[in-house]
Nucleic acid binder design. Structure first.
Lengths: 161, 161
DNA sequence: CTAAACTTAAGTAAATTGGTAAACTTTATG
DNA sequence: CATAAAGTTTACCAATTTACTTAAGTTTAG
């Protein structure tokens, strides 16, 4: 029931690249150092992001990594699923999957709803939104990416975590 | 990122007991057969539900299991956390946990929001709601427990899963 | 041609998952 | 009080996943 380190590192990596202002491609080594990711582990994650079409990589001296899309077009959901495959909170939500137990299993439907609620947040959150917040950082404006998302899906529930 | 079998079986077990109309305690063996749970596995789960205070067990011949609370007072969240411990979609959400990376890490806050959305559903879903739906089963009324919950938290997001 | 950079393919220790098995304790009932 | 029915406890296990590490490539700028 928890995000893997791989996916967390993938998110940090994508965010690191999206925050990069030069148009030089970034090297894995820099990213690893800046984001506290074991280099040899990151080096394994990068090709997965590439085969998912999220980044381009340039080999050889002077090479590195850059994004293939605009940060505003890359959602957290997309990044997570690039690494972990489709998100399914319950086994019965894999694929199109209606529960095999009953035509309409009540448990199945509750998990489906919980998952929709969660995915809505991950889908509404883009790298652009996250970068904005990181960069407004110390400034007066206290809008968080999460707050943006919350207002976007205009339905945050009051509940202590 | 997925519910374990243990927790799924725990939910089925609790729902099975809540659906029981007699006030005879139910035996693990019956429950296992009815809910397609390997008996020897269920037998391992039952004591966990008991130490979480969700059920009482009666030993010896004629013994079995019954609920300690009313089905309307038992939420899915409670059952899941009895088995898996506190739900945390990201490592940085364990405990009270503010992210150690930044005072306000944008990634952390997004996951916190996603988790609140998900937990709201699991918390609003009680065994009573699920039993209602199972039993209205074939009838005309098409209210699902999930639909009830959705209206309760009055904010379901449109999104294809 | 060589150092910088990504690529590919193994390997690995530890934890988790989903079970199974066996020995034990408690208790109703005859 | 004997016995069978029921839950309890403990231990074990194989497969998978996780989070890495290592090492031997390949590509390319300069």
């Amino acid at each position: 029931m928890q995000l893997t380190r791989r996916a967390e590192y993938a998110i940090r990596t994508m965010l690191d690249i999206a925050s990069n202002l030069d148009d030089q491609p970034l090297m894995s080594k820099e990213i690893a150092a800046r984001q506290d990711i074991p280099l040899n582990f990151l080096i394994q994650i990068v090709p997965e992001l590439r085969s998912a079409g999220l980044i381009h990589t340039v080999r050889g001296s002077g090479g590195g990594i850059y994004l293939t899309k605009k940060p505003s077009e890359i959602s957290l959901r997309y990044i997570v699923e690039a690494i972990e495959g489709p998100i399914a909170l319950n086994q019965c939500l894999i694929g199109d999957a209606s529960c095999e137990r009953q035509p309409r299993c009540p448990i199945h439907e509750v998990w489906a709803l919980a998952q929709r609620q969660m995915l809505a947040v991950l889908e509404a959150t883009t790298l652009a939104g996250l970068v904005d917040q990181s960069q407004s950082g110390k400034k007066a404006g206290k809008t968080s990416a999460a707050a943006d998302v919350a207002s976007k899906i205009n339905n945050e529930v009051e509940l202590e975590v």
